[in-house]
C-alpha cells in the first residue's frame, strides 16, 4: 500500500516546524558568538553610519548630514534619491 496523504502532509509540516525551530537555534548560536571585528573598527574610526546608501553625502552619513539636507523634509516632501523612501528623517528635539 502506498503512503497515506496525511502521512506526507503531517511529515511535511513536522519538517517545516523543525526548520522553524532550527532558525531559532541558529539565531541563538550566532548570538553567542557575534563578530567582534566590526565594533572594533567602528570604535577605532569613530564611524557613525553603515554604508547602505553611498549615492550622496547626506545619504552616506545620515546621522551627520546638514539640517537642511534632504531627509529632513516634511514627510510629504519629495526627496531626490530612492533611499529616502526607506529611512526616516532625524527627529528635531
Amino acid at each position: 500500500m502506498s503512503l497515506r496523504p496525511s502521512t506526507l502532509a503531517l511529515g511535511g509540516l513536522a519538517l517545516g516546524l523543525a526548520g522553524l525551530l532550527a532558525t531559532w537555534a541558529e539565531a541563538g548560536l550566532q548570538a553567542q558568538a557575534p563578530d567582534p571585528g566590526t565594533p572594533a573598527l567602528v570604535r577605532e574610526l569613530g564611524l557613525t553610519d553603515p554604508a547602505l546608501f553611498t549615492e550622496a553625502r547626506y545619504t552616506r552619513h545620515l546621522a551627520l548630514s546638514d539640517r537642511h539636507a534632504p531627509f529632513q523634509d516634511h514627510p510629504l516632501g519629495f526627496d531626490h534619491f530612492p533611499s529616502a523612501s526607506l529611512v526616516a528623517p532625524p527627529r528635531h528635539d
Binding site: W24, A27, Q30, T54, F81
Partner: peptide, 19 residues
Amino acid sequence: PVLQGWAVLYPHFRLTPQV
C-alpha cells in the same frame, strides 16, 4: 536593488540571524 538606490557601491553583508 532596493537598497542599492542610485549608488554604485553598496555593501555585501551577511546579517546575524535574529528571531
